[in-house]
Amino acid sequence: MNYQHPKLIEELAAQYVLGTLRGRARRRFERVCARNAKALDAVRQWEDRLVDLLAGVVPVAPSAVVWDQIKFRVRRDRALRPKRVGATFGNWRFALAAGIAALAIAFGLWTGFGPGRTEQIATVWDQQTQMWSIEATRSRGALQVNASANLMLDPARAYELWALPGGGAAPVSLGLMPKSGQWTLQLNDAQRLALSRSKQIAISLEPPGGSPTGAPTGPVLFFADVAVPG
């Protein structure tokens, strides 16, 4: 097919915009548009010519959840976009791909907190919005996680907390984050060790119930520094 022929280009552009150019022909014409400014311009002109045909379509008010989901997706994408975040996530993937999954298990390395004390070890932010605060208490061997009020979170997914021990070691799941209110994450020895070695924690988006593999499977949405115990 001679895509340089103006009449053919014009006809395909009209059919493309109309929606009657389908399947492989549609894909093929998209590729033509990608390298042929005249074809692209013909598409643009047909889009502009026909748009007012939609005037008779009755507007429909979307459900409130639609905007919530859009806002969520936009913020999630922004959270993933910064270079620092991407680089860190890349390192995870590299570590996992390299099979560096072994984690030494030891006792008594959880440091810093006196008996009965609860100390804030991390605060998770999304831009200017505080999402969660995380406190730890040695005596309970657990984290107390508090969700900020009115968090905009994906209701169909889980938010999983990970310790990032560094040094090429794999992230270690510390449990799922609450979407509202607060709950306690009981830590086993491996988790406590991993956290004691972590300068940062991360939160990834996972299927309901958390990562099915033991490693982050969804996008990493948030990072937070772990405070040095006082």
């Binding site: 939609l54 429909v60 008010a61 979307p62 905007w67």
Partner: peptide
Amino acid sequence: SGQLLGILM
């Protein structure tokens, strides 16, 4: 959004 949802529907 109202117009777009109408068109999409």
